[in-house]
């Protein structure tokens, strides 16, 4: 160890390195970020639930965050790791479908958005 130097530094701000990130890592990053943004936006949504863009943003973020949570839960309960990419894309598809379905239901039943 005496003759060795520090490890190669890796930085979040090195945008070029993002290209080498794997899908599972992106999914984790997106979940973390969506949690932070939700934490900021959700109180405003509670205070005034009639701001349309905010309602859609909260819906999208909750689905993004929840779909990754589902992935982790399924992985915890033994979903085969070799299919993890397929699981990610499948849940992404479910999430997009849920966003439009829930958005549409709200419009159909409450008439706003």
């Amino acid at each position: 160890m005496e003759s060795s130097g520090p490890p190669v530094p890796s930085s979040v701000w090195n945008v070029a390195s993002w290209r080498s990130m794997y899908p599972g890592m992106w999914s984790w990053v997106v979940q973390r970020l969506s949690a932070v943004v939700l934490l900021i936006l959700f109180p405003f949504h509670v205070l005034n639930p009639y701001i349309a863009w905010l309602r859609l943003a909260v819906l999208a973020l909750v689905i993004l965050h929840g779909m990754h949570g589902l992935k982790v839960i399924l992985t915890d309960f033994g979903f085969p790791a070799r299919h993890q990419r397929r699981l990610l894309w499948a849940l992404a598809a479910v999430g997009v479908a849920a966003f439009f379905a829930l958005g549409f239901l709200r419009r159909a039943f409450w008439g706003f958005i």
Binding site: G24, V72, T75, A81, R82
Partner: peptide
């Protein structure tokens, strides 16, 4: 472990350490 699957993606021998760690967690 946060189940990011980076090890699983990178392993040249096709091993999934993520699956092993999940097994240990269970």
């Amino acid at each position: 472990c946060h189940s990011q699957f980076n090890c699983t993606e990178a392993c040249p021998k096709g091993i999934s350490p993520t699956a092993a760690i999940q097994g240990l967690k269970r």
